[in-house]
Amino acid sequence: MSSPTRAVALRPRSTAALVLVSLAGLLAFGWPLFATAGSRLGHSADAPLFFALLLPLLMAVVLFEISEGGLDVKAVAMLGVLSAVGAALRPLGAGTAGLETVFFLLVLGGRVFGPGFGFVLGSTTLFASALITGGVGPWLPYQMLGAAWVGLGAGLLPRVPPRWELLLLAAYGAVSGLLYGVALNFSFWPFTTGLSGDLSFVAGATPWENLRRFGVFSLATSAWWDLGRALTNVVLIAVTGRAVLGTLRRASRRAAFDAEAGFDEQAGSHEQAGSDEQVAARPTLQE
């Protein structure tokens, strides 16, 4: 059983910031369940735009707190490599029929390098891929936060014997793929036009009633896409997981993220003694 690596240290302040942005994210996704009939949120299309502006600011605070003493050069280099690979992989699926080819890498990266690394990796990968594919819009902050949660959750998974690890990661990939789709549906469902009957959002209805309507909406409009994403995660983790995990763990050992820098006084004294002997052995110039 491999011991966990913490490529990105989560200190108390960065942990508090991460919890704060997660709570704000839950509000950004789930506010339709609590909107009253007379509230402006219930009848305005400004809510997604408001949260789309708020979430990047909160995530910037989290990234700043994480980078403040918890993100060294080696972790930045690893983030750059994996974010670039993920951004290059995503257009191969582009969400067609639910084929998302990037989330398995977030799961494996978060598993090897820890929850803090997984959170940052999810957000930077989705941001980089949006720049490459031209997918920048009000939906991007929701996608970034959803992917960040996927990487964070992978880093928080319990340790299991090696023979069960791929099964655990594949199961998590399936569940996280479904939940990611559900969360993204919540971000636009209240303002989807042309809906009627049980598919539409009703401001002021009880949370359970709107949840029922949302369930009908999801089954009717995106169930196959979400199942496709979940299945893609399972297949890619099962096929590539062992090799990718081995590669990432070798890179982690070479980078020695968990090692603490120190000075060996005994070695230092030997080096100093050797230096003094070399100076004494040098020939002196005679005038």
Score class of each variant (00 low, 15 high):
G69Q: 02
L79R: 06
L285Y: 14
L105G: 02
G86W: 12
F34E: 03
S3G: 10
D258W: 06
L169Q: 01
T240Y: 15
L152W: 07
R40M: 09
A256W: 09
A84L: 11
M59L: 12
T232Y: 08
A9Y: 15
A9D: 14
L157A: 01
D198L: 15
L145T: 06
S2Q: 08
Q286C: 12
P161M: 04
L71Q: 05
V216T: 08
L55Y: 14
L57S: 08
T96N: 15
E65T: 13
F113Q: 02
E65P: 13
T192I: 13
Q278R: 08
D226E: 10
A75K: 01
G109S: 04
S83Y: 13
M78W: 14
R6P: 14
E271R: 15
A251I: 14
T15D: 05
G228P: 13
A148K: 02
P158L: 01
R90V: 06
L140F: 15
L166P: 13
F119R: 00
G151A: 01
A148T: 00
L157Y: 09
G246M: 09
G30R: 07
S39I: 03
F201D: 03
F29Q: 02
G122Q: 00
L18W: 09
G274M: 09
A77G: 11
G118D: 00
A261M: 11
L231M: 11
A75N: 02
P48I: 04
R213W: 11
W224C: 07
G114H: 04
A87L: 11
T36Q: 07
L58T: 13
V244K: 05
V81L: 09
F104G: 00
V120Y: 09
V73K: 14
Y180A: 00
L179N: 03
P56T: 10
A171I: 05
A130M: 07
D72I: 02
L99I: 15
P162V: 12
F51A: 03
L99E: 05
T36V: 08
G204S: 03
G177I: 08
D46P: 12
A94H: 11
P32R: 01
E100F: 03
W31S: 00
V202H: 09
A130H: 08
A45K: 06
T96F: 15
A52P: 13
L227T: 01
V85L: 03
V136R: 13
R229Y: 11
S252H: 10
A37L: 04
E277S: 02
L199W: 11
S44V: 05
R213E: 05
H270M: 14
L27T: 12
P190F: 10
Q143P: 07
G93K: 01
F51M: 04
S2N: 07
L211I: 06
G42A: 03
A130T: 06
L20K: 06
P32Y: 03
N210Q: 00
L54R: 11
L211R: 05
A259G: 10
F117R: 01
A147P: 13
G197K: 08
L195S: 02
T125Q: 04
I237N: 00
G228D: 03
